[in-house]
Write a protein that binds this DNA or RNA. Structure first.
Lengths: 147, 147
DNA sequence: ATCAGTGCAAACGATTTGCACCTCG
DNA sequence: CGAGGTGCAAATCGTTTGCACTGAT
């Protein structure tokens, strides 16, 4: 099964792009441009500098070539990017610690979506689940008992 | 069945707030702050002026009191507000004309969401469906034939 | 009279762009 | 060599905030 993470031939290779690609590959979660920017500087240790605007431009190019997936979370205006690893993924977001908990499967696999006249052709979807992760849940409970 | 659209007593009534409330009641779709701003000016016809910052502050207050629901759509950073009419609603968004087509029901009513250890307590969710509405679908088809 | 609500302009943070220079292919 | 990529700084866009003033209760 071929992953979708191969480099598109029409995308010129530069050290900046390869560095960002590497960072996204290693990322444990979707990253903001600023997080990427910081990780570049950390990885490059002054060898050379990458401009923020370059990061934006590269993310734009990556997105266009479907190398990455862009998303935004509720109550936050900054965009997040993660490597497009084929089969799509959804997250549950903890309202307290903001941790992202990946869902095991896409809940839509089993669902039919209905509009008024069923005249809408679906090409993609986005789901965000909000609530509390186990840790925060336990903490909240404890706080309730401590009184 | 009581609607959630009654005015919270702790929210002072002012002409600005009442005007915005009216606009949201009449709105056929979620509105951006700017759209609200334009509609106010149109409705008030120079009688007096409402500042953009005021609109933001009022939307913040309305949101806090659950009078409105705030949301953001993919590929657009501006926030949208719609009157909270109780039972929540989702939309299918046309990628071509950007029309919002309301879903008949929440697809999650029938679905179980699973995280790794099922240790996540869900309090809310957000769904966005993307694709093509009937009109745009037909247009695309026609374009295909015309050659 | 009091305190929340408002207008205005300035501040802000994320993202974009214009332009000169650089580098991959 | 030439087109496309990059760095830098300035511009833009949505949103927020400080402050003095106004208005609802």
């Amino acid at each position: 099964m071929k992953e979708r993470t191969d480099w598109p031939p029409e995308l010129k290779k530069t050290k900046q792009r390869e560095e960002i690609y590497r960072i996204l590959e290693l990322a444990e979660k979707p990253l903001s441009v600023n997080e990427i920017y910081v990780r570049i500087d950390r990885a490059l240790c002054q060898k050379y500098h990458v401009a923020v605007s370059t990061v934006y431009r590269i993310m734009f190019a990556f997105e266009k070539h479907h190398l990455v997936i862009k998303s935004t979370l509720m109550g936050d205006e900054t965009a997040l990017y993660e490597m497009n690893r084929g089969g799509h993924k959804h997250y549950a977001i903890c309202l307290k610690c903001h941790k992202l908990v990946p869902l095991e499967m896409c809940p839509f696999e089993k669902v039919q979506i209905q509009t008024k006249d069923n005249d809408f052709t679906i090409t993609s979807h986005k789901i965000e689940i909000y609530g509390y992760c186990k840790v925060c849940q336990n903490n909240l409970q404890k706080q309730g008992e401590d009184k």
